[in-house]
Structures are given as structure tokens and as C-alpha cells.
Design a protein around this nucleic acid. Structure first.
Lengths: 338, 338
DNA sequence: ATTAGCACTCCCTCCGCTTGAGTGCCAATT
DNA sequence: AATTGGCACTCAAGCGGAGGGAGTGCTAAT
């Protein structure tokens, strides 16, 4: 595309993302292209519309970017905005002070993302199929019931009540837990699996197989480790004055099953993903953009962190800020979840 | 108030809560009072309005209940609806199958409340100042840093990184944890506090004082243990077609600090609380009703569970269903968090 | 290739009109 | 004395047309 067309497309996106009003040739000529007349710009706009980058809400209105227009903008024209000092400070303070607890950590990060992007945020805990067991403990509830406590890398803590075939009292349980831990500490799902196969039946094996169940549960059910925040930010956007739109989005956000599926399917591919409007496979998100990136202290451990908002969002700013939060979160997690 | 006035007020509330349209004398005469003329009912409606139980949106409209009208209805006229069989089954299945983990348990309960009341739900974890320590463990991170894991009654699990003054390796840590646990198991904040005072300085005391910090943190920061769900249900209600209203409510729901403060202040007083519209001390909830009740396996351990919705809600149904969830949750918690 | 000029389109807002549901009151009825 | 039918009155909501204005597309001139 010629340079001038690109410049005009860029101007349209920038103008529209801040004003939310379809932008006309006059405004572009006055604010962005002082050396061109509005008529020239009209011709270019018309061309850009023919090419599919812009659309007109109705005949006598200005232009707004199509999904394809936003796509071109994000791929070729967008400049990531430098972080304003206060935003940088806010992110660092909040994330550096985030609790070690995996669940609380995720909630904190979601809060920060929502605050700095002024959109809804979505964050999943750092986990992965090769995550290692960090600690394990057994607590006696009644003679045959035991609470299994499992701490994974990323400081994800889970508990599960398990039944054992013969009564064991707390002292023996603690020793058993210590013995098992020696074998499984630092191991991942697969390694523990092969360990369990080699073990003769007995209480130790019963516990191990439950550990496996819990690990698998972790894996599929990353659902429980996805949180969202900042829905209130969406309410301020004109595209959500119609509550029907918002209802669709909330259906996704409040159903963590859907949400985790969405994240998993998207984040496979690359480190920064911008999914614009109709590019979304999820029906309910067709009028939204989802921006996702990953964070994590290591290659094994990956969490997702993202933004959900109207397709009209300030891409440059949001990508920059999301990246900053991701870096801070990775760093903090390396400290506390080593 | 005379019986007939009460009957008419009751009819107005019932009609309005389902239709969301101001109710006129005609409809009442036709559907509820076949032996009275609409003129008679008009007189009664006029009286009820003078008494402050009803208001008129405008001169030539029907009547809607005022906050005072709803208050009278809830105090004297409401009949708790019997649970439909499928609802009963749903509640029991979902709550019986709720995970042992305190956090996940709360999330499950919030989902159930939202589903059966068709409103937004708010649930806090079962906790109290006299909650007892159930288990405690120490995990070595690096030589001087230790992860303290604390399991409380109600299966609330928290972790905190603590610094110790001299390096201790994992084996010794585990023995130390066992020793401390012997002393603190089954004790509450106060008992652990007096224990710590009697202890000579040393690593054991350092750990104990951190346990106290964590317990205090639990206490004030019940904030982290309040979840909400079902905001999407509110979007279907005509009173929230204006997004400004919804924004106010979301400000409260999404700020868990506010939310926990709200719950704490409300639930002090009685076991079932219905706070209607302007009765709310919280500015942003002035057009909402909050219905709260408590649940818990014991007197020591109390959680809150509630509904936030428009003042026009089906009080009888919601109170009944909330109660059913509370009972199921108490029972389930007694099983798993003994 | 650019631009001034101009007719044209169409949304938006305002205004007045009509409709209809509902009220309040009065006089008649039981 | 309570109830009721009758009736004038009120006001929101829906409809349709007029006017304004922002913006376009086209044409002809530069």
C-alpha cells in the first residue's frame, strides 16, 4: 500500500480509537494532513473503503476501521506507546508486592491489567504440563480419610480429600508424606506417572495415584485458575451501552470453563496475540478484541494474561502496558516461586 | 393495617416483581380481586400511596412499591416459596460435589447462588476470629527463605514467604514444622498468641510470629476470600438497561475491599438480612436490594452468602433458595472441613 | 494529481399529534 | 358508610414530518 494511504489509515484508527465517532475527511485534513485538501482525502478514504480497510456506518457518515483495517494497523502501523512514569511505577509496585500464593497472585495481576488498560482483564495462573511438584503433605481427617496437600511450581496450592484402604495416624502420615516427597519433589506429571507404575500396591501407591489424579485435574481444569476483572471498565465504552453486547461478553468471562478453553486455544501459537472482532472463533466475542500475552518465570511454566475490550481500543498503549505487566509478573514469580 | 390493604399491597408487590410494569387498579381487580371494582381498588391504592408504601412514576401511571412497601412486604407478607424439585436437586448435586479447597468451595457456592436466584451472588469463605489451625508446614526455598503453609478450619489454605535468621535445611524444617504443629494444632489466634509470648527467641518463635501475622491477615483481609458471580443475570433486568446503574454496582462487587467491609458490617446482626434500596449504607447500592444469610459448619466458623439485585426481586423465592444453599453448604463443609 | 464547488444523502433532534392506560373525583347505588 | 359506574383529566410513548448538519461523491477547473 502507498505511504499516504497507510498514513491516512493510521490517522483514522488513531482518531477513531480516541473519539469513538466516525471520522470524516474534514477532521483528517485539519488535524493530520494540513497540506492536503479534504477532497483528496475523500478520494483516499473511498479507496481504502473499496480495499476493505474502512467501513461507513451509513452513506453520509465518516469512516470507521473494519476488522481488516485494525488488522493492518496492528500488523504494520501500530507504534507501542512508551509507558508514562506513573503507570510504570504503579505496575511495579503492585506486582512486586503481589502475594506469593498462586491464586492471590493471579488476582493481583488481573487487577493491575484492568487498571492500566481500562478494559476487562483475563489472567490465568502460571502452569504447564511439565510443572514440577514442590511440596506435598498429608493431613489426617478421620481414620480412613486424608487431606492431600500439593504445592506446585508457581505456588499453586491444591487440596483434595482422599480415602485410603487402611487407617494411618497423623505421625505415620507425616513420615509417609516425607518419604513420598523425597521421591516426587522436583518431578513432573510424567515422571511421577512412571514412578507410580513401578510401585507395589499399598498406601504409598494409593496416595501417589491420587497425586496423579490431582495433577491431571490441574491440567484440564486450569479453569479454576483463570480470573477476570475490570468488567466495569467496559461499561464506560459506548459500544456497550447496549446491554445485550455486554451480556455476551460476560457469558464468556463468567464461565471459567469457556474462558480457560479460549485462552488455551489462543496462546499456543505465539507470544503476543491480537484477535480482532470477527477473527474470534468464539461467537460471543465477534465484536471484541482479545489481546493476549504470556508470562512465566521459566519456559516450563506459562501463564496467560490478556485484555478483552471493544475492537476500538488503543492498541499501541494496551500492547505496551500488557507487556510491562507480563515482564513484572514473570520477574516477581521467579523470585517467589523458584 | 387492615387486611384488605395488606392483601392489595401484597398483590402489587407480587405483580410488579414479575411483570416489571407499574400495576394499575384494573389488573388488580381482574387478576386478584374479582369481587371488588377497580374504583374501590383505586381508593385503596391512593391510601397506600399516602401511607408511603407505594409510589407513582408519574401521574397517570400504575403504582410500584416504595422501599418502605417492600420492607412491609418482606416483614409481614412474604411467603417463602417451596423449592421446585429440579432446583433442589441442582443445589444438592452442586454443593455436595463442591471441592474441599476453601477457595474453590466458595466459587462453587457463588455459582450455585447466582444460578438459582437469577441475580448476582456474593459469597465469603467460612472463617471467624476463633477459627483453629488445622495444619502447618514449612518448605525451604533458599537457605534463609521459607514458605509457610497454613491450613485453617474451613480448608482455607494460605502460603507466605518468610525470612528466618539462620539457615535451616528441609529435613530440619519438617521436624520443626511437626514440633510447632503439635503445639498449635486445634488452637485459635488467641491461644497461639499467648503461646508465642511464652516462647524464648529462636527460629521456632520467628515462625510462630509469622503464623500470627498470617492469622491477622486472614482476619482483616477476609477480602481475598469474597467472590462474586452472576453479574450477567443483572443485565437481563430492565432496571439495568442504563449502564450507569450497573457501573455503580460493579464498583462494589469488583472491589473486594468494599465488598468484604459490606458483608462484615451487615452480617453482624442477624442470620437473614434483607437490605432494601435506600436502607443500604453504601451509596452505590441505593437502588439495589442485598439479601444475606450465613452458613457454616459450626458456631465458630461463619461465612456469608448473599444476593445483590434490583429492589424489584422475587423476595419469597430468593430467601427460600438462599436458605437452601446455605443449608447445603453448611452440611458439605461439616463433612470436608471438620 | 489535486482541489473547489455543489448537489445529495441520511442521521439526529425537535415538535406536535394521537393513542391509551390509568388516575381522581363525584354522584348514584346498595 | 362503603362501593361502584361514569367521566374528565393527565401524561408517557409512539408516530411522522420538518429542519439542520455533517459528510459524501461527482464534476469541472487548476
Amino acid at each position: 500500500m502507498e505511504a499516504r494511504k497507510r498514513a491516512i489509515l493510521k490517522a483514522v484508527v488513531q482518531e477513531f480509537t480516541t473519539s469513538a465517532v466516525p471520522v470524516g475527511s474534514q477532521i483528517l485534513a485539519n488535524r493530520y494532513f494540513l497540506n492536503l485538501s479534504s477532497a483528496t482525502i475523500r478520494n483516499e478514504l473511498s479507496n481504502l473503503a473499496d480495499l476493505g480497510y474502512l467501513v461507513q456506518p451509513h452513506t453520509s457518515a465518516g469512516r470507521i476501521p473494519s476488522d481488516q483495517g485494525y488488522r493492518y494497523f496492528v500488523d504494520f502501523l501500530m507504534e507501542t506507546e512508551p509507558l508514562p512514569r506513573p503507570v510504570k511505577v504503579f505496575i511495579e509496585e503492585q506486582v512486586q508486592g503481589a502475594p506469593a500464593d498462586g491464586q492471590l497472585f493471579v488476582e493481583r495481576v488481573a487487577m493491575v491489567v484492568a487498571a492500566v488498560t481500562h478494559n476487562a482483564s483475563v489472567v490465568s495462573a502460571a502452569y504447564g504440563p511439565r510443572a514440577r511438584i514442590k511440596h506435598l503433605d498429608l493431613v489426617s481427617l478421620d481414620p480412613q480419610a486424608v487431606l492431600l496437600i500439593l504445592l506446585m511450581e508457581g505456588n499453586l496450592l491444591r487440596q483434595q480429600v482422599i480415602e485410603i484402604s487402611q487407617p494411618v495416624e497423623q505421625g505415620a502420615l507425616s513420615r509417609l508424606a516425607g518419604r513420598i516427597l523425597k521421591n516426587v519433589a522436583g518431578k513432573d506429571r510424567e515422571e511421577v506417572g512412571s514412578l507410580a507404575e513401578r510401585l507395589t500396591p499399598g498406601v504409598e501407591n494409593e496416595v501417589l495415584s491420587q497425586v496423579l489424579v490431582l495433577l491431571d485435574h490441574f491440567e484440564q481444569g486450569a479453569e479454576t485458575l483463570v480470573v477476570h476483572d475490570g468488567v466495569r471498565n467496559l461499561l464506560k465504552q459506548p459500544e456497550f451501552t447496549d446491554t445485550a453486547r455486554l451480556h455476551e461478553v460476560l457469558e464468556i468471562l463468567e464461565e471459567s470453563r469457556h474462558l480457560s478453553a479460549l485462552l488455551r486455544q489462543l496462546i499456543m501459537e505465539s507470544d503476543l496475540q491480537v484477535v480482532i472482532g470477527s477473527e474470534n472463533l468464539t461467537e460471543q466475542l465477534r465484536s471484541c478484541t482479545v489481546v493476549l500475552t504470556t508470562y512465566g518465570p521459566s519456559g516450563r511454566l506459562k501463564g496467560t494474561l490478556g485484555v478483552v475490550g471493544p475492537t476500538r481500543m488503543q492498541y499501541g498503549q494496551i500492547v505496551a502496558r500488557l507487556g510491562a505487566v507480563a515482564r513484572a509478573a514473570s520477574q516477581r514469580l521467579a523470585e517467589i516461586a523458584s
